[in-house]
Amino acid sequence: MTRPPLDYLLGSDGVRADATLPLTWFTLAISIIVCVIIAWLLWVGVRRARANGGAAETVGTPLEPEQGRGLSWITIGLAVSAVPLLATLIWTMAALGHVVGPPRRSGMTIDVTGHQWWWEVEYHGANPSDTFATANEIHIPIGTPVVVRLHGGDVIHSFWVPALAGKTDTIPGQQNIAWLQADRPGIYRGQCTEFCGVEHAKMGFEVVAQPANDFEHWREAQLQTAPPPATPQLIHGMQFTTFRCGLCHSIRGTDAASHYGPDLTHLMSRRTIAATTLPNNPGALAGWIQAPQGMKPGTLMPDQHLSGAELNDVLAYVETLK
């Protein structure tokens, strides 16, 4: 069976999740055992009961006098409970120490900002020109801890990649730190988990963990600016896109430079559009540009109502943004 995308019970793929998983199972097992024991005690206790009755039966049953043996239930019960509780307490503190802070030697640091209802991701390099932004898809090299500085762009969101680590909120006016370290390559689903408005449901993202080489390639590619348009249609498409879409989006290498919406410079390199709402294919893209409100009702990108020709030009251009 394949694991559900947001599962964190059946497996883990990153250092922090690895440290949490056994504790999750441990507490779950204790919980189930406690429930089974109590259910059994209750069942047997009640089964000894007199037949089903009503008021008459109740009134007719003589009273049991108070006896000493009742109290020992409480003392024994508390004493037995103390053992798993104490164990949990100790394990919790130990595990917390493992997962809480980023390790002192971290590979890289990225900035992630939660927006209604998409994720802005910023990478930094040795010099300022090595900085670039992308959206809704975070690439990390495997085997190295990646520190994620979390910022709140508007309201509170929460950053969660269950296979790799637990949640950390992104809060306006405050910088929180999370860190991720993937054990093996893979595509891990993430999701906003703090209620943030109408489309809180559709505020997903993906973490793509790759070997260091592949990651470097990806990074190199992302640093490129958008290719210049080569055909008249593309030129027209670019002009229209920077004029219209540039109100909210930026495409590095063109005049489109607004940061209200996701950076589109390498849109076509992403697997999904609109925070995992749709797969990134031409049909979905066309549909999204024309009528995002139909696919993600309430999203802050308005329907564009382009004419057929405009849409074709825009699509043709946008599809060059690899």
Binding site: I38, L41, L42, G45, V46, R48, A49, R50, A51, N52, G53, G54, A55, E57, T58, T61, P62, E64, Q67, R69, G70, L71, W73, I74, I76, G77, L78, S81, A82, L85, T88, L89, T92
Partner: peptide
Amino acid sequence: SIIITFPSAIAVFAWLATIWTGRPVIT
């Protein structure tokens, strides 16, 4: 939050003991 389990557990065991050492009538 883990410690707060104890006082809650008192009630649970007290009720169970009441059922076990009593003569329950099922209404």
